[in-house]
Amino acid sequence: MEKLSTEQLQNICSQVRRDILRMVHGVNSGHPGASLGCTEFFVALYFHQMAHNNAFQMDGVGEDLFFLSNGHISPVWYSVLARSGYFSTEELATFRKINSRLQGHPATHEKLPGIRIASGSLGQGLSVAIGAALAKKINGDDHTVYVLMGDGEQQEGQIWEAAMAAPHHKVDNLIATIDLNRQQIDGPTEKIMNLLDLKAKWEAFGWQVIETKDGNDMAAVIAGLEKAKSLLGNGKPVLNLLHTEMGYGVDFMVGTHKWHGVAPNDEQLASALGQLEETLGDY
């Protein structure tokens, strides 16, 4: 398949952001802030980087896999899964509603294509990704496993158990990304529980660390993912520090923790949608 241009990918981002806002507005709940901040990353992964099969197979043999550890940013994932063909975009309208496959936090229970494990309780996704990556090695499957974590999530102890284990077991088919937006529910990470130098910490645990300085610039995100991929296969896992702005793309939402888990009202939605072109057609 021919790769999409940066401009085409940016157009998809605009639509995904519209989806995110309309989904959380439609049910008056959900997490728009970091969903908007990670939009370039998700679009780059699913429309450019990963070799994935949208005829969904749970065991994912022979394809790249993605796991979302910070499950609360489900809106961006659901939108990108739908927009890349895993299920119909109309289903996005059911987000967080009764009898929906689009649970508030991702779940396999409802058999939504694209989801391989539940997440929401933080800190668990990296361990799962390590397991999936080890299974690929046993199976002789040379595809890559991706996982996204939040930065606030770095406060969970299990992350560091997993951080220790991956280099020990030479899990070098794994790219873990941290969404470094420096915000969490109660405020800036610096005030809530200072993460200090994450690069030095992950390096000390034996990871190859790269930084994507502008995680809301499509070209930079792609360059970061390609750099990460080039470092695989040498006995060490890769960590991608992805600097993003929470709420990116909407002027009154950007750069604050206040939209972490709050839906826009009617007026706010109209204002936000006015800033985002409808490129692929709203669901």
């Binding site: 361990s127 390590i130 102890g157 299990q158």
Partner: peptide
């Protein structure tokens, strides 16, 4: 190692490869 939470997560992930 002495990291049971991680063990459970890794185990869950390994099922995804069958």
């Amino acid at each position: 190692g002495i990291a049971e939470a991680n063990m459970m997560g890794i185990a869950a992930g390994m099922t995804i490869g069958g």
